[in-house]
Design a protein around this nucleic acid. Structure first.
Lengths: 207, 207
DNA sequence: CGAAGACTTGAAATAGATCAAGCGTTGTGG
DNA sequence: CCACAACGCTTGATCTATTTCAAGTCTTCG
């Protein structure tokens, strides 16, 4: 897929013409990140946003050897927006958890774009709002729901469109803020109660 | 304090002239909320934002009889922005925890204002980003830090400007997502270790 | 003044984490 | 292409921080 085409799927740019996208493209700097490589950290000054076009990036907080995943990003997504619009530092850390490719867009240029194409600002407000919904949902899950129902809801949601889904315990544990062991136990509980079926790594919900 | 004056302290309006504020004022509908009265709930469709000019409002999530506070708002603050820019429903519930006064501003009018005064959109992006920082911080506190250090950090932060601060166990427990008992125990631990002093309801940090 | 609400302290319960060990899967380099 | 090392998954046993339950004291204010 061409970069131009990819830009179109970044929601804030979706309303722009090819000509306009072409201009934005000129601001972007692409870089490959290997699995395990840091994209940005909360210690560093936020200089702009990233656009993930390939791979997977984990956004997380770390403190005293423990860590909490906030979100796993997959293509095509924008990262680091909050840092760009407020504050010195990014609010969290981002690390590639697969070999990935990201473009960087400087805050100054982003603001230039927003000012030039006012429609974009509403889109941007929409993105930030979506981030807030996601985080509020995370807090709800972390503090109000037990492990088994969280895993169950996760699976239900993932199998909403597709019938069956590839299930990686480690990844799900990360996304839900649980340990691998807890997720594994939750799965066997759900299997026993007949709510799900799992053959190999393929999982499906019984409705 | 006049409404016009109050509007000026809502950061998104701070750059507007009196004439412009006067126009915005005409969109606002004020209403008194008694202690315990619901301002909005996550079940209801988001029709606009609120501006708190008096009292205290708690933003929280509830599930199966349990609840988790996301934030306590004090004047002058805006509430419900995320709902206005995305999604059918507000992401959480808001309830007055003191007798309060709020103005309501319809989404349509807010967007009109943003489109008319483009500078406002950057301010708005800043507000949403600040909300994200706050929530990320909440997640960090809830999942990575223990009760005693959370209470300690809370007190340190609150006593940053003032030397001494009025401490209400119940309110702090809400804000930190802990039980009253846990906060009370944390306080006595901190007192014993000499890190803080508390006489009556007045608390201070030993530095 | 008295009663409702706020705070403290102790004892018990609990959900999930941590530690530990064994098994399964996979992919790489010899 | 096979072997085996590294990694992922499962299951059991213990541990621990915080919640819950309970009961008593202190505060405040109508």
């Amino acid at each position: 897929m061409s970069l131009l085409h990819q830009l179109k799927s970044v929601s804030i740019f979706s309303s722009l013409s090819e000509r306009e996208l072409y201009e934005i493209e000129s601001y972007l700097i692409g870089k490959k990140y290997l699995n395990g490589e840091m994209v940005f950290s909360s210690y560093e000054t936020a200089r702009g946003v990233f656009i993930l076009t390939e791979g997977k990036v984990k956004l997380y907080k770390a403190f005293k050897g423990k860590e909490q995943t906030l979100r796993i990003f997959t293509p095509i997504s924008m990262l680091g927006e909050a840092g760009a619009f407020k504050g010195e530092h990014y609010p969290a850390n981002a690390i590639a958890i697969e070999n990935s490719y990201l473009f960087f867009l400087e805050t100054g240029n982003l603001i230039k774009i927003i000012e030039r194409y006012p429609k974009i600002s509403l889109k941007m407000l929409g993105i930030l709002s979506e981030r807030l919904y996601h985080l509020v949902n995370l807090v709800e899950n972390l503090t109000l729901k037990d492990a088994v129902s969280r895993v169950y809801e996760y699976i239900k949601q993932k199998t909403d469109e597709k019938k069956e889904v590839l299930f990686k315990t480690t990844l799900v544990a990360m996304e839900l803020g649980l340990t691998v062991e807890t997720v594994s136990r939750a799965i066997s509980t759900l299997k026993k109660s007949g709510k799900i079926e799992k053959i190999g790594k393929i999982i499906k919900v019984n409705r």
